[in-house]
Design a protein around this nucleic acid. Structure first.
Length: 912
RNA sequence: GGGAGGUUAGCUCAGUUGGUUUAGAGCGCUUGCUUCACACGCAAGAGGUCGAAGGUUCGAAUCCUUUACUUCCCA
């Protein structure tokens, strides 16, 4: 045989991917004669390269899409990328810096030119990588969130939502990322536990109406020189405190560097410790500025000292307190996280450097009472990991309430189903507590907000500058207003403000809301993505879909797990525990990698990736390859009669049952189980059993009828496997037979399960026959008898006809040379009992009578115990009354089986 | 701190409306095997008192209560 004993994927994969594309199999167009099946890809970042998460996600999508295509649906998988404003801008800025170009020296247009150049050069990498995985996307439909049409869609939506009063502009406390120097949305903030420090600061009390500044410093004792700053120290001495207590108010804070932005100290009005401070002011340590003591029940008496410094510019709660008490706002932080001139002290220092320095200075000034360890939480940027600053800033927001209500409704009533359903709870919690979405970003890479400011500071919102001008002329009642008088908002929109339109915008549903594609392909069917972007993206797509199409964007959402390493750790560059997907494909083949990923990917569970899984996938490819080699190598002798009626009928029954099971798994999005069903069908049923039953002896020909059935089965298996392993199945499809021009397994019809009328009996009979075979093989193993040594089998059974019908199979798989029926076995035999039947294998010289007796008696004892427990149950009156008839019947059957088995065992023991 | 999951064989997971000395799968493990498609293989086998305690029931991995551990979401 010329075919290699191991399958080599690399030779095969590129070839077939190219052929599929040449044939246009992945192209989809509105076709009223077919049912549409649509998937939009979660657009990867244009800066991205393929990682293991993409592999899993896109493998699942491809499996679904390929199956739908074979089912005769008009399968449309739309690929594309998103512009990832923060990540891409950072990347381009860094690249320019390497070339000696600073962003601030460029105009917006110049920068965007650079950025688009970069995108053209590198932006398609990840899509090409998907092709190596086998992704059957309609590449002609590739979209990019910042291309002109999609940009227009974003702007149209912005204008529309503004006109509907859902978008507003205002000063709000936002999450400021000092590293990317932009506001980000609540969803882009990740809370992290940290071990922080709580600083207890002394604010000098200025008595009501009196100027007693002589207390300022002289009553302070110098701190011990060796007192380590940062350690929890012992300064909290009662005597000293009480002495100082009357002159100082101690305030606990984790952010001492923000005292320069303090505008008050707040205490609870019910706190007796501070009642005397009514009308008092205190001096900010080091700075000396006087600020009032205010009273508010918001302050909790048991946190810190019960006194709270109020810094409205840098804390949301403080801001609200400030508004309530009419306090000023002092913002001491610059956009990059350094202190600005309003801070007066530490100007130009980074906030963390300033914190260290001020702690030191406070300590030296005797104004730091103590420092405590403090388990705290910091908010960090999902994208840059920088610590977020709450910052008051003028931003654009989208009101969520109106959009969230219907979007929650459709998930609650299962119009959109989440898989696994446990995510419904999470979704509900988010939807019910959703806050307005900050959609403006202080960046250039993205869609510039279509708001245009008039010279008088008012603004208009319009799709184009020209439209804005027309509106501005009306609004200002100034017909002489010129384009040059208008200034467009500098900010761009959040990338998710593009992505949430994706299922509509990729079909041009905004530009042309009634076009054939959108009407046909929308709503899409399945969405496959990670739960980490359930809110970012999935929820918002549902909102946009309902708002703009009055229809949900997809019906089923499959949420994958996270790919982790075998120790359960997230894959990261730092740990270096993430394999390069392309290396894996090169080493094990795309089919091997795809199946490897799916083997351990139950829905919603994290996938603990182990290269062994991919090895298993490769081994499976190889198994299939060798099954093909065997069949391909058979010579036909047309004169031979059909010799394998039983195996052929049985395998058909198995096959049909497996197809039904497979379809059921797909229905329930149990991808891992679906794969396992085919895996076992191929490996166990087809290779280990069926092929072994029908294969002719070495160098003997096969009859034509058997070959015809076997080839047909193999073809069906290739179809069932194709969604999982597209490459090897296509290769074998064409190796197996000469194919017509467009006859590819890629577009072959998906097999329909049609169980033969006698399936139940066929399967049950074969189970009994295979149990006999297993019994024989166990004897061989126990007695160390190789498979080539022929054995005789004597059966004592109430159903000899069954064994007679399947004698050929028993002979072949069991290595049995002679099957006879008798009423008793011979003493020099090894016996085994199945149900009520006894089987004897005469083995002169291999028999240890005593050991045989012990073994059989052990089995007997077990069977008797079993019988007893069943009898006990059947004897229980309450059981007889309450149990359903079928349960009762099953128990009676068990009893009968047990009795037959006991009788057979007793016989066998007697025969010894 | 609030909420939602999970805890079943060494590992990763199934287990549908409670039905049993027999709770399944894949991988791994053990033993034997150059059986002429495949050692990326073949055959056989071992391995679990279903986190713990209590309860309901004729009967509980499955229902209820308490508890421990763990993951995630929100604050």
């Amino acid at each position: 045989m010329s075919l290699a004993t191991t399958y080599s994927p690399t030779d095969v994969e590129a070839k077939w991917y190219q052929r599929w594309q040449e044939q246009g199999f992945f192209k989809a167009s509105a076709n009223p004669k077919k049912t549409p099946y649509t998937v939009v890809i979660p657009p990867p970042n244009v800066t991205g390269v393929l990682h293991m998460g993409h592999m899993l996600n896109n493998t699942i999508q491809d499996v679904l899409v390929r199956r739908a295509r074979m089912q005769g649906k008009e399968a449309c998988w739309v690929p594309g990328t998103d512009h990832a404003s923060i990540a891409t801008e950072a990347k381009v800025v860094a690249l320019l810096k390497e070339q000696g170009i600073e962003k601030r020296d460029l105009t917006r247009e110049q920068f965007l030119t650079h950025a688009f150049e970069w995108k053209e050069k590198y932006g398609g990498i990840i899509l090409d990588q998907l092709k190596q995985l086998g992704a059957s996307c309609d590449w002609d439909r590739t979209r990019f969130t910042m291309e002109p049409d999609l940009t227009e869609a974003v702007l149209r939506v912005f204008v529309d939502l503004y006109k509907k009063g859902l978008i507003y502009r205002g000063v709000r406390m936002v999450n400021w990322d000092p590293e990317s120097r932009t506001a980000i949305s609540d969803e882009e903030v990740i809370a992290k536990d940290v071990q922080a420090k709580m600083y207890y600061l002394r604010y000098e009390i200025v008595a009501p109406g009196a100027e007693n500044s002589e207390f300022r410093t002289q009553n302070l004792e110098p701190r011990a020189e060796n007192s380590e700053l940062g350690a929890v120290d012992e300064l909290n001495q009662g005597s000293k405190l009480s002495a100082l207590g009357s002159k100082f108010l101690t305030v606990a804070t984790s952010r001492p560097e923000t005292i320069m932005a303090d505008v008050a100290v707040a205490v609870n009005p019910n706190d007796p410790r501070y009642a005397h401070l009514a009308g008092a002011t205190v001096r900010i340590p080091l700075l000396g500025r006087e600020i009032p003591v205010i009273f508010d029940e918001y302050v909790s008496t048991d946190f810190g000292t019960g006194a709270l410094k109020v810094t409205p510019a840098h804390d949301l709660n403080d801001y609200e307190l400030g508004v309530k008490h009419n306090l000023p706002v002092i913002d001491i932080l610059a956009d990059d996280g350094t202190l600005n001139e309003k801070a007066v002290l530490y100007v130009g220092q980074d906030r963390f450097a300033a914190r260290k320095q001020i702690a030191k200075d406070l300590q030296e000034a005797g104004l730091l009472e103590k420092v405590e360890e403090y388990a705290s939480i910091v908010q960090t940027s999902e994208r840059t990991k920088a610590v977020i600053e709450p910052k008051l800033s003028l931003q654009w927001f989208l009101k969520m309430e109106h959009l969230a209500r219907p979007a929650l409704e459709v998930v609650e009533n299962d119009t959109v189903r989440l898989h696994p359903p446990k995510f419904k709870n999470m979704y509900r919690a988010w939807m019910e507590n959703v806050r307005d979405w900050c959609i403006s970003r202080q960046l250039w890479w993205g869609q510039q907000i279509p708001a245009y400011y008039l010279p008088d500071g008012s603004f208009v919102v319009a799709l184009t500058a020209e439209a804005a001008l027309a509106e501005a002329r009306v609004q200002s009642a100034n017909p002489n207003l010129q384009l040059s008088d208008l200034r467009q908002d500098e900010d761009v929109l959040d990338t998710w403000f593009s992505s949430w339109l994706w299922p509509i915008s990729v079909f041009d549903g905004f530009k042309d809301p009634d076009n054939a594609d959108i009407n046909y392909f929308y709503p899409t069917n399945d969405l496959v993505t990670g739960p980490d972007i359930l809110f970012f993206w999935v929820a918002r797509m549902i909102m946009a879909g309902l708002e703009y199409r009055r229809e949900v964007p997809f019906k089923e959402v499959y949420l994958t797990g996270i790919v982790r390493d075998s120790l359960g750790r997230k894959m990261s560059k730092q740990l270096g525990n993430s394999p390069d997907p392309l290396d894996l494909i090169a080493q094990y083949g795309a089919d091997g990698v795809r199946t490897g990923m799916l083997f351990s990917a139950p829905a919603g569970n994290d996938l603990l990736f182990d290269v062994k899984l991919v090895e298993q996938g490769r081994n499976f490819s190889n198994k299939l390859w060798n099954a093909f080699r065997l069949v391909k190598g058979w010579e036909v002798d047309a004169a031979l009669p059909f010799a394998n009626e039983k195996p052929v009928a049985w395998f058909n029954a198995r096959l049909q049952a497996a197809i039904a099971e497979l379809d059921d798994h797909f229905e329930k999005f149990r991808m891992s189980d679906a794969l396992m069903t085919v895996y076992k069908l191929v490996w166990d049923d087809f290779c280990a059993l069926y092929l072994e039953m029908v294969k002719p002896a070495y160098q003997h020909p096969i009859d034509a009828e058997t070959l015809r059935h076997t080839t047909a089965y193999l073809e069906t298996l290739l179809k069932l496997l194709h969604p999982f392993m597209p490459f090897i199945t296509e290769e074998l499809w064409h190796e197996l037979a000469e194919r017509a021009e467009r006859d590819y397994v890629c577009v072959a019809p998906w097999p329909q399960a049609t169980a033969p009328p006698d399936a139940t009996r066929l399967l049950a009979d074969m189970d009994r026959v295979l149990a006999v075979v297993a019994g024989i093989r166990t004897v061989r193993n126990q007695k160390n008898i190789g498979p080539n040594k022929p054995l005789a089998l004597v059966a004592k059974t109430e159903d000899p006809a069954l064994l007679a019908r399947y004698e050929g199979i028993i002979r072949k798989l069991g290595g049995i040379s002679e099957l006879t029926f008798a009423e008793a076995g011979t003493a020099a035999s090894v016996s085994f009992v199945l149900g009520g039947s006894e089987f004897f294998i005469p083995l002169e010289g291999h028999i240890d009578l005593a050991a045989e007796r012990v073994r059989l008696e052990k089995e007997l004892e077990y069977a008797q115990g079993f019988r007893e427990s069943v009898q006990k149950k059947l004897g229980n009156e309450k059981f007889a009354q309450n149990a359903k008839p079928d349960v009762l019947e099953r128990e009676r059957q068990k009893l009968a089986d047990a009795e037959a088995r006991i009788a057979a065992l007793e016989q066998a023991i007697k025969a010894l």
